[in-house]
Design a protein around this nucleic acid. Structure first.
Length: 198
DNA sequence: TCATTAAAGTTAT
DNA sequence: ATAACTTTAATGA
């Protein structure tokens, strides 16, 4: 968890509930709140000219949403959409900065947090430029698995749909499916009732 | 080779 | 039931 929920409430944070596919904020909105997920999953996305969805990242409980934008004066370049029913803690920008002043340790945590998402971005942009779909998907799965304690092969069930994997890597779903099947044939993954084990 | 289109089967709501 | 996801196959850049 990025910031202790009690501290957020002390600073005047409120709770918001969202249903699946509700927008928490939209592209071009002015960032004016700090958002932290108490329960649920959220994706940050864009739509390209053809209307194809590009998922920038998927966030889960305890993570903050688009916090890096609070430190500058630009509108959001992405949408934040609930993937599940969500409970989200919301704190005004001004209170958020008061909080950072009051708790320097949290300010440091915030830096760690932004570094983490920047790290993911570095890996994924490099990835998106690579041509080969196997390496795109492998890079994504390696990243996801890197947070797991259990490192043995096929111990990790990918918590994404093929559609989401496609939107994260810039591939089309069909190519994602075919590539995953080819990877199964090469013993890089296992597929157990449609779930991908890596 | 990969994207696109279409069609059909499967799962989740 | 209906929508969302998964899969296969054909075709074209």
């Amino acid at each position: 968890m990025v910031i202790d929920e009690e501290i957020l409430y002390q600073m005047g944070a409120t709770i918001e509930n969202y249903n699946v596919s509700d927008f928490i904020f939209c592209e071009n909105n002015i960032p004016s709140y700090y958002y932290q997920i108490a329960v649920g999953e959220v994706k940050l996305n864009n739509y390209n000219e053809e209307g194809k969805e590009i998922i920038q990242t998927i966030l889960e409980s305890g993570e903050s949403i688009g916090e890096s934008l609070l430190f500058m004066d630009k509108p959001y370049p992405i949408n934040a959409v609930a993937l599940t029913a969500c409970v989200i803690i919301k704190l005004s920008k001004s209170s958020f900065f008061l909080l950072l002043k009051k708790y320097p340790e949290i300010s440091l945590d915030m830096n760690r947090c932004i570094s983490q998402s920047l790290y993911f971005k570095f890996i994924m942009t490099q990835n998106i430029c690579s041509q080969n779909p196997v390496s795109k998907l492998k890079t994504l799965m390696d990243y996801l698995k890197s947070f797991e304690i259990e490192k043995s092969p096929f111990s990790f069930q990918i918590p994404l749909t093929r559609q989401q994997m496609a939107s994260l890597t810039g591939l089309c779903v069909e190519t994602t499916i075919r590539t995953i099947k080819a990877m199964e044939r090469n013993n890089m993954v296992k597929i157990c009732n449609r779930k991908i084990l890596y």
